[in-house]
Design a binder for these strands. Structure first.
Lengths: 356, 356
DNA sequence: GCGGAAACTGTAAGCGCTTACATAGCGCTG
DNA sequence: CAGCGCTATGTAAGCGCTTACAGTTTCCGC
């Protein structure tokens, strides 16, 4: 038997090869009777190849089921046409609309989007930044300004430009496309005050390492200050990002005495949670208590009563961020700080307080 | 001047290099005074290297801000530890929870998840499949069974296993972790009928290339048949996946005469749209008309009245799919067809019809 | 019919990593 | 103290692509 070992082994290997190995550029080239360079050109610059060869090659590609290897391609071409984005969460639709617009705009410019989420954690965000860069992201979309300075250094040595969205801060290290969270919330709070409320409470997302949440709370405080109310005494509950959390926080606030006549929530998700719990507690909104949100996601218009909130120009923000990032990647721009306007959306959930 | 051109040029290049070029493994090796092999081992198998060298290398990695190139790594190691998933949409949170569980489970096994969305389009899905495979996905999570057979061939030649979720079909080409959409909807419809409804209408997502939507409609028909009602005469409106679409479809259905006493929606998003429009039209739910959904996403419990729907075990599905896929990628399993149970969630939006 | 540009195609050198294999240095055993 | 088996490192061969450059045809105009 020994003398057959060689040939048999070869046969086995071939069989396995046939079954498993994915076709390479080389295989296509052989099948089409051309060089790998020609196949590559066929795929990347079809018009630099004669019609005849192109047809042969494309046919081979199809019959073999060839699919180019992104890693190898990126390595050889030193280009990936990929942009990365890291958002805090995919659960609530807050970022979905903006990201959708971002992606559409990128696609127009020939870029593919890679998305990752950080679960609102700075360390996870850093991990994801590294991962996206390793995977070839040529530019990055980040949310908010709070992050370790070392990251800027990293991005710089890697030569990867980044832009921040959903926040605006003139002194930020990175270029941004956002709106003034504090001023926008201030406008809402002004309105609440103007409607007659004096006992105002806030439900906020965690303010640690979240400048948007922080600024929004500050906006409310500014409004109270301006109205001569005691901002320092204003009850603020910080909680995680979910409807249930909003509900719990609301109940906590409403069991204090005297209880607030208006609850300003840091975002629509928390506000909806608050409304849900209000119903359970038998409190009428806005009769017994007014509730407001922020973001103006679809949810805000679905609940009843419809939520008074602040409309964030998600789509516009996404589109503009994409354009800026593409320019930066191309080396055509340094990136600047664009400010958009978020506008008040007065709806049913805000009304004057009951005459006590 | 001419004689300085050479040196000056070199200097310029060096400056640019310092500013732009990201550090490579080679640079780390040089900085640490070891070979690239050692650096690589340090990063991948720290315990195969002496404590002393490891410290030197890690220090160099940190000071240089080194980040390994995923493509090169994948190429050399022939491993990516990456799994891909393609879901129809990221907008509505239907897939979010399941995907979250999927990802958590993958992470446990050392895999990274790459997500793409197809916008409910078969051609886009195919494009995304190719893209994820090119990017190194070693396994794929797909939603539903409807797709071109050529894709199975492609996946096979690429040696990439796939599992389908959110659907169950004994005869499917791919292994799956899902539930019986028809049977689950049938149970809901049975309940609607048992509650006394006879004029029933359906709002469905587009059934073309969406087996889940198709099966759900079929489930309603089955229920009507079984109850001796005329399933063929049942009004069915197909529409796109959004709250607004649901609203429009609802209005369309409610302007027919005689109008339905119950509207069964293919998913919660459409149902919420219907409820929203009912309110606008001055119709009481469930007094004037009952409305039901499917999926039991958070939204279902937020609207008022709370939505009667079918609870889909998203998390369980995601987790099981991940485990199956990991086994398949490791070559430990061929993948089978797991069926989970979706269970009826009776809430406020379903009640007996008004006595006509 | 000839020179040369234009139009294709091929050759081969990497891109940044991992890893099989070779090598070196060490402490042991017998 | 020869010789063994360790462990820690280095050497170098690719992984699958792109692209600069060189080579080959073809097609003009004159």
């Amino acid at each position: 038997m020994a003398r057959f070992a060689g040939p048999l082994f070869v046969l086995t290997v071939m069989l396995m090869t046939n079954l498993r190995a994915a076709p390479k550029l080389h295989d296509v080239a052989r099948a089409a009777g051309v060089s790998t360079a020609t196949v590559s050109r066929c795929l990347n610059f079809p018009d630099r190849v004669s019609r005849e060869t192109r047809d042969k090659v494309m046919a081979a590609v199809r019959t073999l089921g060839y699919s180019p290897n992104f890693g190898a391609r990126a390595m050889a071409a030193k280009r990936t046409n990929t942009i990365g984005a890291i958002i805090p969460t995919m659960e609530n639709a807050i970022f979905a609309r903006g990201l959708q617009a971002f992606q559409e705009e990128l696609r127009q410019s020939g870029y593919t989007l890679l998305v990752a989420s950080s679960s609102y954690r700075l360390d996870t965000e850093e991990e994801q930044i590294r991962s996206l860069v390793a995977r070839g992201a040529e530019g990055l979309l980040l949310i908010g300004h709070d992050r370790d300075a070392a990251i800027h250094h990293f991005l710089q040595t890697q030569g990867v430009p980044a832009v921040v969205a959903w926040s605006h801060d003139d002194g930020s290290a990175l270029p941004s496309v956002g709106f003034d969270n504090r001023r926008s919330m201030r406008a809402l709070a002004d309105e609440v005050v103007a409607t007659g409320h004096q006992r105002i409470a806030v439900i906020s997302a965690a303010t640690q390492s979240n400048d948007r949440a922080r600024e929004r709370v500050a906006g409310v405080r500014n409004a109270l200050d301006a109205a001569g109310l005691d901002a320092a005494a204003m009850p603020v509950v910080e909680t995680t990002y979910s409807i249930d959390s909003g509900a719990r926080a609301f109940e906590e606030l409403m069991t204090t005495d005297p209880r607030p006549t208006a609850v300003i929530c840091g975002n629509d998700v928390l506000a909806v949670g608050a409304m849900k719990r209000a119903r359970v507690m038998g409190l009428d909104v806005p009769g017994d208590v007014s509730i407001t949100g922020f973001d103006d996601i679809e949810l805000a218009n679905v609940v009843s009563p419809a939520l008074t909130t602040v409309h964030v120009p998600h789509r516009d923000m996404g589109r503009k961020a994409a354009r800026m990032l593409v320019d930066m990647v191309a080396g055509n721009a340094a990136g600047d700080r664009t400010q958009l306007e978020a506008r008040l959306c007065r709806r049913e959930s805000l009304a004057p307080p009951a005459k006590a």
